[in-house]
Amino acid sequence: METHGGRGLYDLSSEETAKTHEAAEGIALLSPDPGTPFGQALGAAKARGGPQAYPGSPLVAEALLRPQDRLVLMEAHPKEHAGLKRTMRGTIAEVHRRNGYEGSLALAPLEPRRGLVLIDPSYEDKTEYERAGRHTLALRKKWPEAAVLIWYPLLKAGRHKDLLGVLEGDDSLVSEVSFSLKEGRGMTGSGLVLLGAPYGADAAFERALAQGTPVLKPLR
């Protein structure tokens, strides 16, 4: 389950992408091993959308599903939701146009009971950090069998500490990386915090990070 699905598939040659230079300073410098989970997802996206296609998290998840799995995606923004519907057409994904916080609590727990919830809001509102943390605690209380993975940006303001502070005391796995954008503005890195981590999750984080070493510097 994902609370903020976005459009699911991105074009790295688009005018929007060219303005930020993020792809040129990030994914364009990497050569993911096609035998790894991310390499598989990237290959599937390129086969579907062309050499400049890049998968959002819904397509990464979809590429790795087992026959018995479900995929439930939420996106509230009308334009992004329409894009997500197009991207996931022909897949087993259930796409909802609704607030991801409200929707995930309403639908939880899913069957089968063991699952993964990805929470990756835009954090445009500075209160989003604390909100994401409190939502995670409420979701874990209702669906204790689920692992919850939260993505967050690292900014000079350090607001991600509000999120981690809410989650303090709950057993979690945290991974943070830094990177340098040429213009020196915006994000200085990003982080992941995983609650209810299954066995082997820490090793999986390390394997994924190893592929990003040309761009990413581990912080913890």
Rank of each mutant, 00 (worst) to 15 (best):
G6H: 00
R7D: 00
L9G: 01
D11P: 08
E15P: 06
H21Y: 00
E22M: 11
E22T: 14
E25M: 04
G26A: 09
L29H: 04
G35E: 06
T36L: 05
P37V: 01
P37Y: 01
F38A: 13
F38E: 10
G39Q: 11
A41V: 06
A41L: 06
A44M: 07
G56N: 06
S57Y: 06
L59N: 07
A61E: 01
E62A: 13
R66S: 06
P67W: 07
P67N: 08
R70P: 01
V72R: 03
E75S: 02
P78G: 06
K79M: 11
E80F: 03
R86V: 12
R89H: 07
A93P: 02
R98H: 13
R98P: 04
N99R: 05
G103L: 05
G103N: 12
S104C: 15
L110V: 09
E111L: 13
R114I: 04
R114Y: 05
V117Y: 12
D120N: 14
D120H: 13
D125S: 04
T127M: 14
T127Q: 15
E130F: 09
E130R: 15
G133E: 13
G133Q: 13
H135N: 04
A138Q: 15
K141I: 01
E145R: 14
L149K: 02
D162R: 13
D170F: 09
L173R: 05
L181M: 08
K182Q: 11
G184Y: 12
M187D: 11
T188L: 08
G191R: 09
L192H: 09
L194F: 10
L194A: 10
G196A: 03
A201E: 10
E206H: 01
R207H: 03
R207W: 00
T213M: 09
K217T: 12
P218D: 14
P218S: 15
